[in-house]
């Protein structure tokens, strides 16, 4: 056997799979491949042997810019109370509506309205 003097090197691709048109692509892992085309094929072999999907993206790992692990505290987003920004911060609306003999409605009620005809 001849010693390998020039080992083949494949680039790393990060793989994103979209399972349905209405959801965003989701990162599922990575692989190595000699070209974007082959990375797509291999992604199907490695990550989609069973599940249904509508689209695959592969992105060269070098092309991904990420936040530093040390910055995670900024993303934790819990330093200050943000209840004023969330539906849960307005739970007394329901009580007040009751006082006016009306039921509180939620966004889901309005979304469900669309599912009925007319």
């Amino acid at each position: 056997m001849e010693a390998q003097t020039n080992p083949v090197h494949y680039d790393v691709y990060e793989v994103f799979i979209q399972r349905d048109s209405l959801v965003q692509h989701q990162h599922v892992g990575s692989l190595v491949a000699p070209s974007p085309d082959l990375a797509l094929q291999l992604a199907r072999e490695n990550f989609l042997r069973r599940d249904v999907a509508v689209s695959i993206w592969v992105v060269k790992q070098d092309h991904i810019h990420a936040t530093a692990t040390e910055d995670a505290d900024i993303l934790a987003n819990q330093v200050l109370d943000k209840s004023y920004r969330n539906v849960s911060g307005y739970s007394d609306n329901a009580k007040k509506w009751k006082g006016f003999k009306e039921r509180a409605i939620t966004i889901d009620d309005l979304v469900n309205d669309m599912k009925s005809d007319g």
């Binding site: 209405l22 959801v23 965003q24 004023y84 920004r85 969330n86 539906v87 911060g89 307005y90 007394d92 609306n93 007040k96 509506w97 006016f100 509180a104 939620t106 966004i107 979304v111």
Partner: peptide, 22 residues
């Protein structure tokens, strides 16, 4: 896809408005 996110965030706007009105 974008509308899903927008509607989710709008649900707070709805509560905020109702809170002022109530």
């Amino acid at each position: 896809r974008v509308l899903q996110r927008i509607c989710a965030e709008e649900s707070f706007h709805m509560q905020h408005g109702e809170s002022i009105v109530l």
